[in-house]
Amino acid sequence: MGDDMPGKDALRSELLAARGLLSEEDARGAAAVLAGRALDLPELARARTVAAYVSVGREPGTRALLDALRARGVRVLLPVLMADNDLDWAPYEGAGHLVRAGRGLLEPDGVRLGPGAVLDAEAVLLPGLAVDRRGMRLGRGGGSYDRVLGRLAAAGAEPALTVLLYDHEVVARVPAEPHDRPVRAVVTPGGVLRFGARTVRARGEGTRDAPDERGHHGG
């Protein structure tokens, strides 16, 4: 997420190591539950365009969610990593239209719509390693989604920012910088955690809305 603060790299390493211990069966089971919970979110239920991403490795799975959204008639946009680490976007046309790209990513093979295409999305599904109780997200550190979030802010766009995580990845606090933006909701196998619109915008401390469903979030 841009220039790292002390502690971010250590936390990333710890969280990635924990993901690496998950079995394929555990990851598949979590993905099915995550898809069901995410599909029930009002922000996704009413969205006509959703910007998302294709999960790889032991990331919380998005594949079932992408297919379910597309089956609903939702226009799903997927990122295409550019040489400068910014993100272009292309429509999701099904698993058969995904190709292996750099860094082990899967990207759509369709027409590129330009970095500004994300401005059409009513909801944006962000990858992440953790979210804290203020709604602040810890990314992998590449900076691509910093650019996306900056583009949304510059345009005055306020899509519902949502992250899929495992339960233990909701933590007490992640290091945050002034440009970081809180997310609207976190979906885990154990439940949904929502954050108020005022989160982290005043005094650096946020308010936490009650989860839609009581989960067993760790941290």
Rank of each mutant, 00 (worst) to 15 (best):
G116E: 15
G135S: 11
R173W: 06
A38R: 07
A31S: 13
A68R: 15
H217D: 12
E158L: 01
R103N: 10
E25M: 04
E158S: 09
A154K: 12
L165R: 10
H217S: 06
A17L: 12
L66T: 10
E158W: 00
E158A: 13
P159S: 13
P189N: 08
V148P: 00
V187D: 05
P127Y: 00
G102L: 06
L98P: 03
D86V: 14
R184A: 14
A197H: 12
R75F: 04
V170A: 13
Y92W: 02
E213L: 05
V124D: 08
L44Q: 14
P182S: 14
L152V: 02
V80R: 00
P178R: 08
A202S: 12
V56L: 01
V74G: 02
L106W: 05
Y92G: 04
V124S: 05
V118H: 03
Y53W: 10
Y92S: 04
A68N: 04
A121E: 02
V174H: 11
G143W: 13
R19T: 07
W89Y: 08
E205H: 14
H97Y: 09
V54P: 07
R147G: 14
G110W: 00
V124R: 08
G206Q: 07
P60Q: 11
V99C: 03
D212V: 14
L66G: 05
P108G: 03
G73D: 12
A51N: 06
Y92F: 08
M5T: 12
T188K: 11
A64D: 13
V76K: 07
G57F: 13
A18D: 04
A83T: 10
E43P: 05
Y145A: 09
V111P: 05
